[in-house]
Design a protein around this nucleic acid. Structure first.
Lengths: 202, 202, 202, 202
DNA sequence: TATGAATGAGAGTTCATTCAT
DNA sequence: AATGAATGAACTCTCATTCAT
């Protein structure tokens, strides 16, 4: 059976998941540049060829890493935002749960930052292409929500969304520099700040 | 005369400046990891050895890039912040002039973000560590200023500084994705947002 | 399977042996400094990366070369020395079999002399330090033996051992200059000479 | 005036001598491989081009180094051998003064060993070509002398000369490993040894 | 004569990828 | 499906040499 067909065997799916996980750990530990295929394979206890066999190229593997992190992240965050009683609470939930995700999945975030930082051609291609926009749009939706309900002041949702997304993502990097950072308190402060920045003045 | 002495020839100074500039452009265009010595040298129209001759190693070249960008950036921004009549105006000036710098020096900022984002080995060491912190502290100073004058509300200056720094830096990346972005308007919006976020409520 | 584990495949063992052999020949032919990885690989008919793959670094390859030459050499020489009826006969055997080894393995000796003569950094460290000393000590043991049995005169075993070792090693170089050298006769003369130099006067 | 003509100016001669001396020191200190033209030039306080200007190539510089060391060595040793009352005393003088030269000119010897060890193509070319033979022949002459006077036993002068030359040269290397070596005592022992090896038995 | 900027080849090493088994 | 040996290009860096000034 063609490996890249959608019709995957169980073992195939498991291998891919395992390799993606090892890639995340390897990138988080050594940084993108030093996380070679050989090291990722070694961490999975398999030979180098296996990755090529299952993913075709390193680029595809990285794309899967990104997709996985994004998916897992969304599943951890979105429900809390949706469950919020309003946009203001939703924005706070988005920030708090996002930081909570960073706190509980440091390797995921670290890997993500490494991959994004690596960049590649600036033309907007690269493994993270699209996901960045999507992440910004998720924030933007909450801001729209709040504008419609009148909870938020008049503001450029794009600008605020970009700023908030950046502020959250920056924490993964800060965490590398200050491992003892109190992310819970940090989240509260950040939520307060964006609350002030967005709410309708009294 | 030893190349690395302070007493440099005119031609030596010119070459170093040219190479630093080419490095900035190369990093901005291809990203840090893919900006090889060969590509930088080719962009300058010289052979690879020239970089080693003038800088000793790639690391030293990058250090010079960082030093140059930091210096040029500070000179463009700090005076405006200092000239502001108060902290609130200072914060706005910091944001506006920062975006203006990004608008007029897109490659500089893109390169800087690339270099700082990388930050070297995962452990946070590396030759560029500290520049990110310094940039954050510059923001933090303005926030302290405003707290002392009573212009700003009670807030965690660290958190806000990190968020603002990230929000500004993110624009360099956004600009790559959306070259037609109206940075002037963007800057006004961002300034408004952080004004709301920091000012003392009425 | 990790390449550097002890549990090696047949093909792995064969390649390593082949590469060590090619390294010996290359060093013997061009001298240590000019025996580059590229030349060694070319001699083996493989690409440069193969050496890194099997040995990790040039240094490790050279270590294997030294280990191989030392082992093969010892196995060819030591038994004859041990089998000798006494120290005087042992010393003669050491010289004769050593020259015989040079005659039958000219590249081995030439390579060994190259490697030991270099010895790494000037300070005497480096990965090959010690092998020269070990070779001298092997000679010294025979001299001690003869002093204990009373076969040899009172002498400084260190001085004589260094001299004999040097005299033997020099032949590998001489052989390069005079390929037609009669090593058998040479060995007899050398043995005679050191016999005179060491035996107890009548 | 052509630089390479025999008719050299005083300043030209002085420069060459200075450069040769710096080359000796550089090679002795860093080893042949790491004694680059740049380092040698830096040690002389001149620019790289100067060496090429005066010597044409590194090879020629090294040849001059060898020639210088050989000449200085000969001048230090030969008179003492000639002044000896007979071949036996001459041989002893050759050994003693040779070791004395090593003791008083460690950089010279260290450089010499480095150059010889480096070897180059084994075909007998290289900067030391010829000098090695000449050095052996110098020893051989003394041995012939002693055979003619009947002071020495019947022996193969070539073999003994090679052995003695090697034994002496080996000391420079030993000296690197054991800097505290007592060369005076060493010389006496070596002289004794070769006296036993060569003299007519009673 | 001397400088120092520049060249271009070659060094060891890493790595994504391929492929016979 | 998986192995692991091999490739070949790319990397940074060093160095002897050249040459305009």
């Amino acid at each position: 059976m063609n490996v890249h067909s959608d019709n995957q065997t169980f073992i195939e799916t498991a291998r891919r998941a395992q390799l993606v996980d090892c890639a995340i750990q390897a990138i988080a530990e050594w940084g993108y540049a030093r996380a070679s295929m050989a090291k990722i394979a070694a961490r999975a206890g398999v030979s180098t060829g296996v990755i090529s066999y299952h993913f075709g190229s390193k680029e595809e593997l990285i794309e899967q890493v990104v997709a996985t992190v994004v998916t897992v992240g969304k599943e951890a965050i979105e429900p809390h935002v949706r469950a919020a009683g309003g946009a203001r609470a939703g924005l706070r939930a988005l920030i708090i749960t996002n930081l909570d995700f960073i706190r509980t999945h440091p390797a995921y975030m670290r890997a993500m930052v490494e991959i994004i930082a690596r960049g590649g051609p600036v033309d907007g291609s690269g493994p993270y292409a699209g996901h960045g926009d999507a992440a910004i749009e998720d924030v933007q939706k909450v801001l729209h929500w709040g504008q419609q309900t009148g909870e938020f002041r008049h503001l450029d949702t794009r600008v605020v969304a970009v700023a908030l997304r950046a502020a959250i993502d920056a924490i993964a990097t800060r965490l590398s520099a200050e491992p003892d950072l109190d992310l819970v308190r940090y989240g509260e402060q950040l939520a307060d700040m964006f609350d002030f920045a967005t709410r309708k003045g009294q």
